[in-house]
Write a protein that binds this DNA or RNA. Structure first.
Length: 337
DNA sequence: AACACCGCCTGAGCGC
DNA sequence: TGCGCTCAGGCGGTGT
């Protein structure tokens, strides 16, 4: 056995690496659910207070909440009742009704390192896997605690387990609310339907009232929640839609194909993540979804899997975009062309 | 109201 | 090989 059961970790190489999107967040949710559900949080370690944004009514002095107020908002002393997800956002709900909304941003992760029972010595790694040694320095100390300089929050459970929020780039964050209704009113009401269950009927009206490029619209979390750069590119390739197509020009058939495509792609990625979670996470920390072959993302210049022509790279909505202009033609000619 | 754009961050990867 | 530069990107906030 390897020495660290990692519920979720990011791949270390940038080249094929991905920011956490919906499948990764769902994998995290399923991973920490058995650890957190019904458990009481004994204390919360807050190593970077500014990563946590309290709801205004959770502190009398919003500008400078006390350590105690922050810990209370992060469910110190509370029992976890459920774990929810909407799009890329994860929600921890306590039996008090309090909610902690976690956003992983670009580089965030939630990990639950193994609980080491006091009397039982840890066995050395025994698999024949020949992996390069961990890049972590000072393995004996920092690796055992699983803390990195970028571990901002640690929840300590009464059962001895820990859940840690780590986010080197700090594009992510944690938002706390006194109850579910406040979370909805202040945050989740701004999101569209979750991508996993969104229907063409829900999406269509939102597309018809804008001429923005379809890619920009799909990245907009208020239209559909959970799609990011990778999955939008993959979706549009599968549905054979050019990313610059004005959203209002898409046919009903195209919209249906598009929604079906992302359902399928997201489900595949979750399945891969889930299967890896069941087995374990390999020594390099690559979760299962990492093994998924992307058809276009990060493949600019490489041959299109469909027509073998080099894939095109362009910028849409200030995002790097890869597509095959042959396989993803503009369905309609635009006036300015 | 709808939309564009800025700035926040760090590490991977590249060129020299 | 090593150093420093560029790029990547979700999204909250601000400006048009």
């Amino acid at each position: 056995m390897h020495d660290c059961y990692t519920i979720y970790t990011r791949p270390h190489s940038h080249h094929n690496s991905t920011m956490p999107e919906l499948p990764e967040v769902e994998t995290v949710r399923r991973g920490i659910e058995p650890i957190l559900l019904g458990q009481t949080i004994e204390r919360v370690q807050i190593r970077r207070p500014d990563i946590v944004r309290l709801s205004p009514n959770q502190t009398p002095t919003p500008s400078r909440p006390s350590q105690r107020q922050r810990a209370a908002a992060l469910l110190a002393g509370k029992t976890v009742q459920s774990l929810e997800r909407l799009g890329k956002q994860l929600l921890i709900v306590a039996d008090s009704g309090q909610c902690v909304c976690v956003h992983l941003g670009m580089s965030g992760s939630l990990r639950s390192p193994p609980h080491i029972s006091p009397g039982k010595p840890k066995s050395a790694t025994g698999t024949g896997r020949s992996s390069k040694p961990s890049h972590r320095t000072n393995l004996s100390r920092s690796s055992r605690s699983h803390l990195s300089p970028h571990t901002h929050i640690v929840w300590h459970l009464t059962n001895g387990h820990r859940v840690m929020f780590t986010d080197p780039r700090r594009f992510g964050g944690i938002w706390t609310y006194p109850d579910h209704a406040t979370l909805i009113a202040n945050r989740w009401s701004k999101l569209g339907p979750d991508a996993l269950v969104a229907t063409p009927a829900q999406i269509r009206p939102k597309l018809q009232r804008t001429t923005r490029p379809i890619k920009a619209v799909l990245l907009d979390q208020s239209v559909v929640a959970g799609l990011g750069n990778i999955y939008v590119d993959e979706t549009l390739f599968t549905a054979r839609i050019h990313p610059l197509t004005p959203a209002n020009l898409l046919s009903s058939l195209q919209i249906r194909k598009m929604v079906t495509a992302w359902h399928h792609i997201l489900a595949q990625a979750i399945k891969a993540g889930g299967s890896t979670l069941r087995d374990y996470v390999n020594a390099t920390g690559d979760p299962g979804w990492f093994q998924i072959q992307h058809q276009v993302y990060s493949r600019a210049g490489q041959p299109c899997v469909r027509c073998k022509r080099p894939l095109d790279k362009l910028t849409v909505a200030a995002r790097t975009t890869v597509c095959c202009t042959k396989c993803q033609p503009m369905k309609f000619r635009r006036g300015s062309d």
